[in-house]
């Protein structure tokens, strides 16, 4: 199945097409959400932009939690989480890194591998977040991202994220 109208994203046609195919045909649940849905962990803050994206305008690294709804028992119960995060990394000394996480109220936590941006640019980069598995039904799923501090007056940011579950 082809995407009906291809996104005008530059330089990612094959990657994007592949992800779209996988997301539509295989995943039990995929969700797009704006960066503004992410919450900075205590002690720090993300600044929300008018276009729905979220940036770190502070002088310190911010850890952001980007939640997603996990389907339970309504036709499907998902146990795997992966994702895609579109970020802008404007810090030459640090990267934007994201990973998949599941957290059970019992305290058990599953952390995925970090996926990081490279270099420093005003253009977006795509982070493919590796999959994790958690079969406990009371676990919550989210993506965790580290957004580096503002650098030279340029803030790094999370544009949007897609959580993929199956």
């Amino acid at each position: 199945m082809m995407n009906k109208k291809h996104s005008p994203l530059k330089g990612l046609p094959i990657l994007v097409g592949g992800l779209l195919y996988a997301g539509v045909a295989l995943a039990a649940s995929t969700q797009n959400a704006p960066g503004s849905a992410c919450i900075a962990t205590s002690g720090s803050a993300l600044s929300v932009r008018a276009d729905g994206e979220a940036e770190n305008t502070s002088g310190s690294l911010v850890t952001a939690i980007c939640p997603t709804e996990r389907p339970i028992g309504t036709g499907v119960t998902t146990t795997n989480l992966s994702g895609t995060v579109f970020v802008v990394d404007q810090n030459a000394g640090a990267n934007v890194c994201c990973r998949a996480v599941s957290k059970n109220p019992s305290g058990a936590k599953t952390n995925g591998a970090w996926s990081c941006s490279t270099g420093s640019s005003a253009s977006y980069q795509t982070l493919n977040v590796a999959s994790i598995t958690d079969t406990f039904t009371f676990s919550s799923f989210y993506l965790e991202c580290q957004v580096p501090a503002i650098s030279g007056g340029n803030a790094s940011r999370i544009q949007m994220y897609r959580a993929i579950q199956d």
Binding site: G23, A27, T30, Q31, A33, P34, R49, E69, R162
Partner: peptide
């Protein structure tokens, strides 16, 4: 800004 979750199932 009030975000929305856009499903793609």
């Amino acid at each position: 800004v009030c975000p929305m979750q856009r499903p793609g199932d």
